[in-house]
Amino acid sequence: MSLTNLLNRFKTVSAHPTPSESLALSQLAPSVLNLSITDTPEQWVLYESLLISTLRTGDDTSAQLILQRLADRFGNDNARIMALQGIYDECTATNQAQLDEVLKNYTEVLKDDPTNIPVAKRRITLLHHLSKKSEAISALTTLIDLNPTDAESWAQLAQYYFEISMYPQAIYCLEEVLLILPNAYNTHARLGEIHLVAAESINNSGSKEVVEKLEASLRWYLRAVELCDGYLRGYYGVKLVTGKLLDSKISTAYRTIPEEKVNKLNSVATVQLNDIVTGSEKGKKAFIGYDSAEVAAVKELLEATT
């Protein structure tokens, strides 16, 4: 297989491949490694992707070889190679002590060069993985202080805050992401989700704060749907939130969005979701590309509400 063919194989796979997909990619290792090294950017991109796939499937010998070749080309002190080496070390570590060793290694590298961003990100991920969540968050805030226009860092920080139920902070971080990427509809949907979860976390359901949060959530979801037609996650949220707003527990006095509007939005979302479910089940052309797990979740929601 040629280089372009192999690259295309990698490109067709989603960002979070299933185990079987990973295995299929990992099995391409011999054909990639047997290609003559042409020193083109494409080839090194391919090597990098393959390294991740082989590590996922436990093909450590191929990973070692790929890493060796990358290091030969770019040098061991290249920031990206250091991070890849770190991933390899993390994957091959078999016990806690070895992971701690890797962490110590990262900390030392960062002491020499605090701006080594790939390694800094690896260190944060490893800290979080080792359940040192508050340390991971403070390391990530330092990194963001260093590089405040990195949307990825902000989104990750939001996720960390969300995991420990610090919703106002998570919302703030995602709003920062939107300042950098104002059209990111998935971030809008995520904001809707966090507002919704934050509303549910308040004990006194039916209070003014809950209504405010639910309405904020609805607005974020609606913006997501506005930015992306047929956005399953957005419509799912619209349906869920409008359902909660129409709940009898919610006092109408606090509402700023009129009930008829909420009703209308609910029925629009139901129609859209029904379309998506039936369309993707029949494999219609306009409904190709929906994730089957997401469609299943929608089906479950529709069945639960009718």
Binding site: K133, S134, I137, S138, T141, I144, D145, P148, W154, L157, Y161, E163, I164, S165, M166, Q169, Y172, C173, E176, V197, S201
Partner: peptide, 12 residues
């Protein structure tokens, strides 16, 4: 869900 800890740094 876990309770929010109090000793976590706020974002910049």
């Amino acid at each position: 869900r876990p309770k929010a800890p109090s000793n976590v740094a706020d974002p910049p």
